[in-house]
Design a protein around this nucleic acid. Structure first.
Lengths: 221, 221
DNA sequence: GCCGTTAGGTGACAATGTCACAGACGGACC
DNA sequence: GGTCCGTCTGTGACATTGTCACCTAACGGC
């Protein structure tokens, strides 16, 4: 079906015998999506387990009132269990996944997924670990939202998004959606950061001036 | 080891062949805990999957500053996957489970758990479903905390806790811990409810006066 | 009844969210 | 170059929620 052997890319499948991996390569569907496209959402639930072969997916939840919060990101080599969770639970929810870069996903049909988790320990453990990881991620989100100060969270998120870079390319609205708050709030805090010489701003771009101090803020003031 | 055949109580084990269930009954540890006791926590992670045979467990997360929020409740017949998640992830977290009634839990050693999820489809599905359910629960919590109004959330929680009863026995502090907010906030909102004739209050007790109106509030005003 | 503990009340203030609207900037286009 | 238009950002007033300090009321044990 394809020449792409994705099974080498995931810790849950890489160790499987060649014979099994060939079977998987036959059963799976491969999809390419452009940056910005919706990978899954309330009206678009894939019928199987999703592996992210390449790129990054941003998973977020949105409110009726139009606000949004980023729950976590799925990186290449990870699987996205939230979709399977929703498949099973059949409950209302409003989380969606958006391709943050061009993306290649592998979709393993439910039947193959079931068989594999029965037969292969390493695969099953991989799936359990994926679930666990997301649970922990969500615990962190709850903790932040319920108890965290907005300046602390923003400083932290800027540094995360800026990973070793000198700047972050994002609008205030996008940052608000990261943290589940309103744009005006972000504007205020960023202006405060700027006054204190921690960053510089221009349209859609934030430049670091003093990462050390930002880190201090992010570590709870 | 015990005369209690817990395997009949869980949809993941009830359908298993008698032989398997006998083996499980041998392998599992049974624990009785009194109301109010901590079932698990950061310093007390059981080394296996936990089934709740009888009673109810409240799972909550607490902040450094002493505030607390209830994440979900585990009812009899359900399993508590959060502990296994933490086992796998080995990350810092501060969720804990407290017995809300006297409680009987069954702990299945990791090894038995692994074997069973490999061999028995119904058991594996049970576990996956449990994970999914909790993920969905947490999505709901995030949604509430990030986007919900406090009066709406409180009305909803009161009705949930009051399930068909005429009153709810809880202090303001306890309700604050349910929602992850401060006691003063609860006091204010409850006083408002009282002024509007929706409830009556006395020490540690809230009596419904107008459930219909509360439901209207809970359904987002 | 007395006393200590816990539950609840209150006002002032800080932090965050909402709303309405005003500028400011950048790209497209001529 | 200028002009237009959509998007991004700034701002002030106000509502909601969280924090703090301190007080009063209710209950339980003795």
């Amino acid at each position: 079906m394809t020449t792409l052997d994705w099974t080498q890319r995931f810790s849950g499948t890489a160790a499987l015998p060649t014979r099994v991996r060939e079977r998987l390569n036959k059963a799976a569907h491969i999809k390419h999506l452009k940056k910005g496209e919706r990978v899954f959402g309330p009206t678009k639930i894939p019928d199987g387990l999703m592996f992210l072969y390449e790129g990054r997916i941003r998973v977020s939840q949105s409110s009726d009132s139009g606000r949004e919060i980023v729950l976590y990101r799925v990186d290449a080599g990870e699987s996205c269990v939230l979709t399977t969770a929703c498949m099973l639970a059949e409950e209302a929810y409003n989380a969606e996944g958006v391709a943050e870069t061009d993306v290649t996903v592998v979709i393993l049909p439910k039947m193959t997924f079931d068989r594999l988790s029965a037969e292969e320990d390493s695969f099953r453990n991989f799936v359990f670990a994926a679930y666990s990881r997301r649970l922990i991620d969500l615990l962190r989100v709850v903790d932040d939202v319920a108890f965290g100060r907005i300046d602390v969270r923003l400083a932290d998120r800027l540094l995360t998004l800026g990973q070793g870079l000198k700047e972050v390319r994002a609008t205030h609205q996008e940052l608000a959606s990261e943290l589940g708050t309103a744009r005006e709030v972000i504007s205020r805090v960023l202006n405060d950061f700027q006054k204190r010489g921690l960053i510089e701003q221009s349209r859609g771009l934030i430049t670091f001036r003093n990462k050390a101090e930002l880190e201090a803020i992010a570590a709870a003031p």
